[in-house]
Amino acid sequence: MADPREIHDAFVEALCAHDSRRLLDCFHPDAVIVTPVGMVEGHEQIEWYFGQFFSTVPDLTARVTTMLVHGDTVAVEWVTSGSQAGVMLLPDGTEIPGTGRPVSWTGCGMWTVDDGRFATGRIYYDQLQAYMSLGCRLVQTEPVHPRDQGTRAESRSGSVRRLLRRLAGR
């Protein structure tokens, strides 16, 4: 069995070099990755997924802060950063034009290795941190139902709004 740490190191090197071919060499042709924006399957979708990051953040870099290996599984925590120069596609299809703003987000991944390549992966990252660094804000899209007014949920939503304002520096 190939060392999951070495495979992940090769993946990060390819990611930071924006080298799609080397990146795909780290994955089985039918690999499956579950991401915050959905599931991607196979080389074509995996290339598209990471290609979005390359075109949105052309100076994208990733730094692994923690790595644990257990058998055929590697778990990592990382920080990704760069400047948003290209269009960012949001999960609902909305596009954010390039802002030039610095963007960074933290996340973690869990990868399983089979025959020297990633067979499955799960990626988790702080979408709110990434979107807020681009100037996005949370907006309530549905009015509060009258029966919910004055409830604990309303007090929690007020706390969340105050927290978000404080994070945004307002």
Rank of each mutant, 00 (worst) to 15 (best):
M1W: 05
D3R: 10
D3E: 13
P4F: 05
R5T: 14
E6H: 10
E13M: 05
E13A: 14
A17L: 01
S20H: 12
R21N: 14
R22F: 04
R22Q: 09
L23Y: 00
L24D: 07
L24Y: 13
L24I: 15
L24M: 15
L24N: 13
D25P: 04
F27G: 00
F27M: 05
P29Y: 06
D30H: 14
D30A: 13
A31P: 04
T35A: 11
P36K: 13
H43K: 10
E47W: 03
W48N: 10
Y49P: 06
S55Q: 15
S55W: 03
P58R: 00
L60S: 07
T61A: 01
A62D: 09
A62R: 10
V64A: 10
T65S: 01
T66H: 03
L68F: 03
G71Y: 06
D72F: 01
T73H: 10
A75D: 05
A75W: 07
A75L: 06
V76K: 01
E77F: 03
V79W: 07
T80W: 00
S81G: 12
S81T: 13
S83F: 02
S83K: 10
G86V: 08
G86Y: 02
M88K: 11
M88H: 08
M88V: 10
D92M: 04
G93W: 09
G93T: 12
E95H: 12
P97L: 09
G100I: 04
R101G: 06
R101K: 15
V103P: 05
S104N: 12
S104D: 12
W105N: 08
G109H: 04
W111R: 01
W111H: 06
V113K: 08
D115A: 15
D115M: 13
G116I: 00
G116M: 08
F118N: 10
R122I: 15
I123A: 08
Y124V: 06
Y125F: 15
A130L: 14
L134G: 07
G135Q: 09
C136L: 15
V139I: 14
Q140I: 10
Q140M: 11
E142K: 07
P143C: 03
H145E: 03
R147Q: 04
G150F: 08
T151Y: 04
R152H: 02
E154S: 02
S155V: 13
S157H: 02
S159Y: 07
R161Q: 15
R162K: 14
L163M: 13
L163Q: 06
R165S: 12
R166C: 06
R166G: 08
R170L: 12
